[in-house]
């Protein structure tokens, strides 16, 4: 445990030093992050300027919905983004190196230095603050206690999915198509209230890839919106931390199962 803590500290030290070294590159990617989220929010604004209601949600509600997702997504990107590189490591044969080191393989993946910097997380925090004020969500004790837990739970949901897809890459070397589909479900389908989708997609986003718990159910709770997608009681919105933990444990068990059967790609 002490070793792991030391490794993790070093990991952040290297990340920050790398970012400082490649400052222009960092600024360019930060600009991209701003434009990516900015374009998504602008698109929602343009549409809702013309059509004031989407299934009973106005722009203010949707801004909060997006903010909750953005915060969880940014936290995931800051802490766990390296999990998404596993399929590539497997394909290139670099993954085998991780298996022979005396630390948990998932921990090693997460602590692989890159050019990680909490810039998106800071941006998300700032945006979430504005969106909360703008949407008129009442900030009470429940909000203060539950929002951090929900955001962490949401990041765990994304980690869980990433872990499952990565584990699948042990058997199926090319999982790019699957990654694409999952990314679209997570990044684009979470922008809208769940009730607009057909029943199959609602169930998919609730029970199979539980992205609806990243933002839709919690946002419904804080905005006092009735859930007209699956008829869940409002309290379902507070379940995100539980769902996130359960999901990530499930994914980790699957990951261990996959590791025990991992044979490499024959490099």
């Amino acid at each position: 445990m002490r070793v792991a803590a030391g490794v993790y500290r070093q990991y952040w030290r290297i990340n920050i030093l790398t970012t400082l070294e490649y400052r222009e590159n960092f600024l360019m990617w930060f600009a991209f992050t701003i434009v990516y989220h900015g374009a998504a929010i602008a698109a929602l604004w343009i549409v809702l300027e013309r059509f004031p209601s989407l299934n009973g949600w106005n722009f203010r509600d949707m801004a909060f919905l997006y903010g909750l997702w953005m915060l969880a997504h940014a936290l995931h990107n800051t802490l766990f983004s390296a999990v998404g590189d596993v399929p590539e490591h497997v394909r290139e044969g670099e993954f085998d190196r991780i298996l022979v080191r005396p630390l948990d393989s998932l921990f090693q993946i997460i602590a692989t230095p890159g050019q990680v910097f909490p810039d998106e997380l800071m941006l998300a925090l700032a945006y979430f603050g504005v969106a909360t004020w703008y949407s008129g969500v009442h900030i009470d004790a429940m909000f203060v206690i539950f929002v951090p837990l929900i955001v962490f739970g949401g990041a765990l949901i994304e980690l869980g999915i990433g872990l499952i897809v990565s584990t699948l890459s042990f058997w199926f070397v090319r999982v790019d198509a699957l990654i694409w589909i999952v990314v679209q479900l997570e990044q684009e389908f979470t922008r809208y209230p769940l009730g607009i989708y057909s029943r199959g997609v609602r169930l998919l986003l609730t029970f199979v890839c539980p992205f609806a718990f990243m933002n839709y159910f919690p946002a419904s709770y804080f905005l006092h919106k009735p859930d007209n997608a699956l008829g869940f009681p409002p309290i379902a919105g507070l379940l995100t931390p539980v769902i996130g933990c359960a999901f990530v444990i499930l994914a980790y068990v699957f990951w261990r199962f996959g590791l025990n059967r991992y044979q490499g790609v024959g490099h």
């Binding site: 989407l54 009973g56 679209q184 997609v201």
Partner: peptide
């Protein structure tokens, strides 16, 4: 060939999303 499958799958998902969102928008306004 694999990228071909990805492009088509991604196309179908996007189309479903656009259809759903526009239909919902026109239904309520």
């Amino acid at each position: 060939r694999f990228d071909v499958f990805t492009s088509i799958a991604s196309f179908a998902i996007r189309l479903y999303l656009l259809k759903t969102v526009w239909t919902a928008l026109y239904a309520h306004n």
